[in-house]
Nucleic acid binder design. Sequence first.
DNA 1: CGCAAGCGCGAAATATTATTGCGCTCCCAC
DNA 2: GTGGGAGCGCAATAATATTTCGCGCTTGCG
Lengths: 166, 166
Amino acid sequence: MSGSKLDPIDRKILAELQADGRMTNVELAKRVGISAPPCLRRVRTLEEAGYIRGYHADVDSRELGFEVQVFAMVGLQSQAESDLSAFEARCRDWPLVRECHMLNGEVDFVLKCVAPDLSTFQSFLTEQLTSADNVGSVKTSLVIRCAKDEPGVPFDVLEARLTSAS
Amino acid sequence: MSGSKLDPIDRKILAELQADGRMTNVELAKRVGISAPPCLRRVRTLEEAGYIRGYHADVDSRELGFEVQVFAMVGLQSQAESDLSAFEARCRDWPLVRECHMLNGEVDFVLKCVAPDLSTFQSFLTEQLTSADNVGSVKTSLVIRCAKDEPGVPFDVLEARLTSAS
DNA sequence: CGCAAGCGCGAAATATTATTGCGCTCCCAC
DNA sequence: GTGGGAGCGCAATAATATTTCGCGCTTGCG
């Protein structure tokens, strides 16, 4: 299975950096129980192997004036691969669309969108999204509040699995 | 409006750190066009003011063995505030649930979930989520593929707005 | 067994970076 | 003008990152 090349220290590194991506290498090394140089080597290896995709500041979009968040469920008219890709490409070009996931089931895509205000979003919705080629149905839901937002890996679950599997 | 206390340099800092959260302060200072000390002061201020919520490594969950991602649309039987909060609290306790957003419309919540495999998810679905107190309907959709995943603020949109408003 | 190769560690040395203190300038109110 | 505050850059110091080196441990083979 995936991840079998990682030892417990590597997983601890990933967990710590997921929790605090700006942690100092010496602090990280202290926490995972090795000295700084091998710790840094491991981090570099994990980055190059793709376990770590990048590091990002978590910026509060509401504080910056993006007060509207919306989930949009999109159904297309054609599900041919070329049409799916074309729609995905358009999503990548729309800055208000922050996430685009293709789904199974009755809905083809779920989009997470942001906007400064409702009217901006509605303009986008009617002028761009709904009127785009091949878009059949669009159902939108405003986010009223967010109870949990912790993208990433539940390392506690991972460790529990590996422990029981050993 | 929100964000009016930020000058162009602050916004540039936020944009750069969102793109690369591990950027060195001197590199950041170079990019935003000021020297290192005031740059660091600004970053600290932005952190304390809540514009920056934190820093996180973006860990590839698939590489770590979480091959299943699911969006779950949940409807509750009672939408009384105490019942909503109770459900949110349960979501925060479920490690497989990574995001929980309360919505308007016919669905009360959308959850983003991860799991190592389908059977793990289905166990969670039937034994935990569907059978939880007050849960009415649950519709799940597997994520087939992800075309875009850039949580955060579209700073280009923000700058365009501020420019036209000035 | 015994030896050699390879891997990963830690210690020390060096290069970069973070952080602090200070003086300067600009801008605004008076 | 002139006093005061905010923000900058410079220089010095502390902390951290990064490289280099040698050691010990395991592995695999004679």
